[in-house]
């Protein structure tokens, strides 16, 4: 496992099997994320993309297989331990804390005191809206603002990997542009593993892709190649 001192991949997921209750959701998913890249998980609804992210962060621990972050095995650790190693998680459906103000939503993500203060310029530079809404309860924000807050929250602590689940889901096209721009900017400093249904967004953002089909990772490679390969896209993603 720890044979190589500097692993080629910041995150290595090898053949994980994950169960939710009695249901075998992931039946062998392998994902490799090189540092500094944007990698996207593609696949149909219910293929197991979200479960893959939840397995990595430890909310749905895999029963078999291995996950290594910076060469250190993390499968089987409790979620907060995994997060503390430097992984930020942005869940789908923009789960923010509705009863907390925007400020509190950000403060709760601090891992060391003063994290927010240190990162304030960066975060509010990416999402200027949040500064204006600082004292408003999270539940009062619009969908796009909530999504920004969810991403901003993952940026407060020093994370070297961000897991972002469906950032464009349910957003207006203008907001999607904004979101993509923000993700592109933050990928300059962190690695991103993305789940994205919208193939347009995915193909413009990501450099690498992994296709998951019925709980198994069936294909992976460079996004530039996938865009050329119409047959592959039709087979697995159903987009023309």
């Amino acid at each position: 496992m720890s044979a190589t001192p500097t692993p080629a991949h910041i995150l290595e997921v090898r053949g994980i099997h994950t169960f939710i209750g009695e249901f075998h959701i992931l039946e062998g998913v392998t994902v490799e994320v090189p540092p500094g890249s944007i990698t996207v998980l593609l696949g149909r609804n219910g293929a197991g993309k979200t479960t893959t992210l939840r397995s990595i962060i430890g909310l749905a621990p895999p029963r078999a297989g291995e996950i290594a972050f910076k060469g250190v095995p993390i499968h089987g650790l409790r979620a907060h331990k995994i997060a503390q190693m430097g992984i930020g998680y942005v869940p789908e459906k923009r789960i923010i804390f509705r009863d907390l103000t925007v400020g509190e939503n950000l403060l709760i993500a601090e891992r060391d005191k003063g994290d927010l203060e240190r990162k304030a310029d960066f975060i509010f530079g990416l999402f200027p809206d949040l500064k204006r809404l600082y004292h408003l309860p999270g539940g009062h924000l619009s969908g796009g603002q909530q999504q920004m807050l969810a991403i901003a929250r993952a940026l407060v602590a020093d994370n070297s990997l961000l897991l972002i689940d469906e950032p464009s889901e349910g957003l207006a096209p203008v907001l999607i542009e904004h979101m993509m721009e923000a993700i592109r900017q933050l990928s300059a400093s962190t690695t991103v593993l993305l789940v994205e249904q919208n193939f347009q967004v995915a193909s413009q953002l990501a450099e690498r892709y992994v296709i998951i089909e019925e709980g198994i990772s069936v294909h992976s490679g460079l996004m530039a190649d996938l865009v050329q390969d119409k047959a592959l896209i039709t087979t697995y993603l159903g987009v023309a």
Binding site: I57, G58, L59, R78, A79, H80, A83, Q84, Y89, P91, I95, F97, R98, D99, L100, E104, N105, L107, I108, A109, E110, R111, R153, A157
Partner: peptide
């Protein structure tokens, strides 16, 4: 801070844990 965590946990303990708490 602990109060913020409690109030957040009331809504979604899993997400709080995913933040490293």
């Amino acid at each position: 801070r602990i109060g913020i965590i409690i109030r957040a946990g009331v809504q979604d303990p899993e997400m709080v844990q995913a933040l490293g708490i």
